[in-house]
């Protein structure tokens, strides 16, 4: 049986420049992103809360 989207494991993305980790389970409270927000649902103009790098500078870990 396939997992539903909601059941899929949360993923983490790491900033190439400072190592900050965006954890889907935790969200990003500094930017008003709620816990559970999937990477795909984050706006393209969101940036790293630590070093301000762009979303494109994050990689799946």
């Amino acid at each position: 049986m396939h997992e539903t989207w909601e059941q899929a494991e949360y993923r983490q993305y790491s900033c190439l420049f400072c190592g900050h980790i965006y954890d889907e389970e935790e969200g990003d409270s500094d930017s008003g992103i709620a816990p559970g927000t999937r990477w795909e649902d984050i706006s393209d103009d969101w940036c790293c809360p630590m070093c301000s790098a762009g979303k494109a500078d994050f990689e799946l870990i």
Partner: peptide
């Protein structure tokens, strides 16, 4: 981390 160089970009 939080002290990553401010001016790196």
């Amino acid at each position: 981390g939080p002290h990553a160089c401010l001016g790196q970009h």
